[in-house]
Design a protein around this nucleic acid. Structure first.
Lengths: 366, 366
DNA sequence: GCGCATTACTAATGCGCATTACCCCGCAGG
DNA sequence: CCTGCGGGGTAATGCGCATTAGTAATGCGC
């Protein structure tokens, strides 16, 4: 029997007037002649598909389809604590006007992998663009709508991130990020990739190789140096301090004269790290040209990363590529694992060697 | 007094064991010594900030701060009947491997405008990528998850779209789409833009202009022709059928000989439509080069759209640009209006004229 | 023919928050 | 002294769904 509780009618208005509101499970249930719970069971059909007769199941499915029923993600999440949504958060605009700095390559992989796993993506905007809920101490709180969240770029505020991590919210950072204990991340394996570049050069016959790097303590830089030196050692080549040329301003210090001196000393190959600016590589190329040297013939060059996009596209440098789409995909995989309560796996993604045209055998004879 | 309802404990587990769940309003309330409702009132503080004493308010705020309270977006949305989420759906991958076909330029504008309006974006994957909920008759149902949805590309199945539209679900299509009554869309104003190109050429002194178009019935093509012809008429130039050269295979039919004949007939300027392939423009450029003609000097060329990205970047064609970011932004604005229950406004976005270097005064004398 | 296990559902409940309806209290007016 | 009234809160309720306890119906064995 119904209680006469008509006097109380809290909550919001029943439905936006004028247009059909989205169907609820209750409506599906009514149409199918079953209870709401049954609808939930049928539609939420997990692996344990039992306890529902095929007939009833079909009735429900038909009803749901005919009404165009779609579960409300908010309600779903509230009740089940998941909604098959992965967040993507970048402190700078995800789609900056300057395509060069965009996260596009990552997103290619993120989208694919997410799609393959049945996740949709939530792009959290407000981050930079000064939108409505732009910043503030709880700027990152919105990401909690998703089951988990990917973070791109180093600009996500550490404190906010810590908060999420501590709350057990699944978070994966694209790009190594060690300063925050417990933060899951995926990153390129610069060590191995740099190592391999040395291997290749050594295999070509080079016996003295110099790394040109900028004066920077980023993990990406030190990783490369580390792999480079390890490669030298393993190849039995001189790996002392003289094998690394570290300079704050490659354009000034890496002169053609300096280059010739190295050659005179028996150096036959140079390796530059990739940085935001690409200055190391740029300087190396410039010095080579100014010195009137031919690259694959007189000396070999390799770039530990991708060439600056503005540089002559004809000359593909030897070195390795950073597999950004794969990184994105790996991030999604890791995030999915975290969401599922599993533990993190290998965070490093291999960078494939790129033969390019700037490396060859060392020149023979004097 | 508490009822002994301990036997029943439905719902999901209280919290993932082992980690602190983030605070709820209830905890804030307890700490502040008030009720949950009061917390909600204080934190949800809208314009009607009354009915709460300053003292209580402060207690609540302090408690919330000290606990680091952050509202659960899902719950908030459930209660408030909106999620501040806009969908973005593209039948093909949103971030295809081939950057050329990506919707990136649109998304730039979409993201900005969405951010400015406090919306987050949901990228519906599964569409093409063959993911979990890939296709099926209700493939589009998922978009109902958001408050409204943007559609990119012409491939979204009409029937599914109709369904959404009929249900009153706010939908905006990027790119003109007339076949579906009631479907809101935003598109570039090709008619006006093409018209203006003719104006400019006429102003430069050209008296006979020919449009080269491919054999295609897309609205984008017919719009351009329409604007072109209107421009001719208004400028008092010959706008008969001979002003339009329509061909299925520009590369074969647009020979240098054909070009010379036109010139002999007094034609001094050519206009090509932009298509997926860019064949019309390509053929025009090729014929000019093969005929040994100099572009700005011997004849003027204009392109109704953006040049194919693979074409020599040095030569900026005269014509107009398709303001994709603005289109994206306009789409968001329109969608936001629909979500708010307002009516659609002007769907056309103007295309700015691009002077370029391929148009100049007609050659003087024979 | 009764106990008991299955099967096939339904009823009840709560997730976290927003939104009333209502209540309590002190004070002014009749 | 009772009533009216407004400020300041609180209890109750529901959003839409998932989950689980409970129940009716049926089957089965002895």
């Amino acid at each position: 029997m119904e209680e006469p509780r008509k006097r109380a009618r809290p909550g919001r208005a029943p439905a936006p007037p004028g247009r059909t509101s989205r169907p609820r499970q209750a409506e599906v249930a009514r149409l199918a002649g079953v209870s709401q719970a049954t609808v939930s069971l049928v539609l939420g059909a997990k692996k344990q598909g039992s306890a529902i007769s095929a007939e009833t199941r079909q009735k429900v499915l038909d009803a749901a389809r005919s009404l165009g029923y779609v579960p409300d993600p908010a309600a779903r999440r509230l009740a089940a604590a998941r909604n098959d949504l992965l967040g993507v958060f970048s402190f700078t605009a995800t789609f900056p006007t300057d395509v060069q700095h965009s996260y596009y390559p990552f997103l290619v992989g993120v989208e694919q992998e997410a799609a393959a796993r049945g996740y949709d993506l939530v792009l959290f905007t407000g981050s930079s663009s000064g939108g409505a809920g732009a910043s503030g101490p709880d700027a990152l709180s919105r990401v909690r709508l998703a089951d988990g969240c990917l973070f791109l770029g180093r600009h996500a505020p550490t404190e906010e991130l810590r908060r999420l991590v501590e709350d057990g919210f699944p978070v994966v950072h694209i790009g190594r990020r060690d300063e925050l204990e417990g933060l899951a991340w995926v990153g390129a394996d610069y060590v191995s990739a740099s190592h391999e570049v040395v291997d290749r050069l050594a295999a070509l016959g080079h016996r003295r190789i110099v790394l040109v790097r900028e004066d920077d303590e980023a993990p990406a830089s030190t990783d490369r140096e580390h792999g480079f030196l390890k490669g030298l050692e393993q190849a039995g080549l001189p790996a002392g301090p003289e094998a690394v040329f570290r300079t704050a301003d490659p354009a000034r210090t890496l002169t053609p004269q300096r280059l010739r001196r190295w050659l005179d000393e028996g150096v036959t190959a140079f390796v530059a790290e990739e940085t935001d600016t690409g200055n190391a590589w740029r300087a190396l190329r410039a010095a080579t040209a100014e010195a009137g040297l031919d690259c694959p013939r007189d000396l070999s060059l390799a770039l530990l990363g991708s060439p600056p996009p503005d540089l002559d596209g004809e000359t593909v440098p030897a070195g390795f590529d950073i597999p950004r789409p794969q990184l994105g995909a790996a991030a999604v995989r890791l995030l999915a694992a975290l969401v599922a309560g599993e533990e993190a796996a290998e965070p490093l993604v291999a960078c494939p060697y790129r033969p390019g045209v700037t490396a060859g055998p060392p020149p023979t004879g004097p």
